Amino acid sequence: MNSMTVRLLLSPVNSLKAVRMMRKSGWVISFDAAWRASRIAAHPDELGYRDSGHGPPAAQEALPPQVPPPHREPRQPH
């Protein structure tokens, strides 16, 4: 049994939220990343478990976007 099946059986409401999140993102986020994000949203006390297990690519994490550093002009030689 794979992790998706186990999650669907053990937490169907959270799994439905994850599928909705995937659909809303245009199917860019993986089921695992969406499931973890919806689980953390409902149970913030489990935040530590998100980082300790599964290691998905950073692009698939459902985290807020990073603010780019300010643009700086290159220094002119004297």
Rank of each mutant, 00 (worst) to 15 (best):
V67I: 08
S11L: 02
R75L: 14
Q76R: 12
R72E: 08
S15R: 01
P68A: 04
K24F: 10
A62Y: 08
L8H: 07
E46N: 09
G55C: 11
T5W: 05
L63I: 14
S3M: 15
H54M: 10
R50V: 15
P77Y: 07
V13N: 03
S52T: 07
R50P: 01
A34P: 00
P57H: 08
W27A: 11
Q66V: 09
K24R: 07
A34V: 00
R7N: 04
S52R: 12
S25F: 04
K24G: 10
P70S: 03
P56W: 00
V67Y: 12
R23C: 09
H78D: 03
V6C: 14
A18K: 00
E46I: 15
K17P: 12
A62F: 14
E46S: 12
Q66K: 13
S52W: 06
R39W: 13
A34G: 00
P68I: 02
P70Q: 12
K17C: 10
P44M: 04
G48S: 13
N14H: 13
D51W: 14
S38I: 02
Q66R: 13
A34Y: 00
W35K: 01
M1K: 15
A33P: 01
A18Q: 01
H43S: 07
T5R: 08
G53W: 10
W35D: 03
R20H: 04
R50D: 06
P64Q: 06
K17Q: 02
L8T: 01
A41H: 03
P77W: 03
V6D: 14
R36C: 08
S11R: 03
L63N: 13
V67S: 06
E73M: 15
M22H: 00
M4Y: 10
P68S: 04
E61T: 03
Q60N: 11
W35G: 00
Q60T: 08
G26K: 14
P64M: 07
H71N: 10
Y49G: 08
G55L: 09
Y49N: 15
P64V: 15
R50W: 07
P56D: 03
D51R: 03
P64Y: 13
L10C: 04
W27T: 12
F31S: 00
R39M: 05
P65C: 02
E61C: 04
H71Y: 14
S38W: 00
K17A: 13
P77L: 04
I40Y: 07
Q60S: 05
M1P: 07
Q76T: 09
Y49T: 12
A33T: 06
K24M: 13
W27F: 15
D45V: 12
L47P: 14
P64D: 08
A18V: 00
L63C: 10
M1E: 15
A41M: 09
P56A: 07
P70K: 04
V13P: 11
L63Q: 03
L47C: 15
L9P: 02
S11F: 01
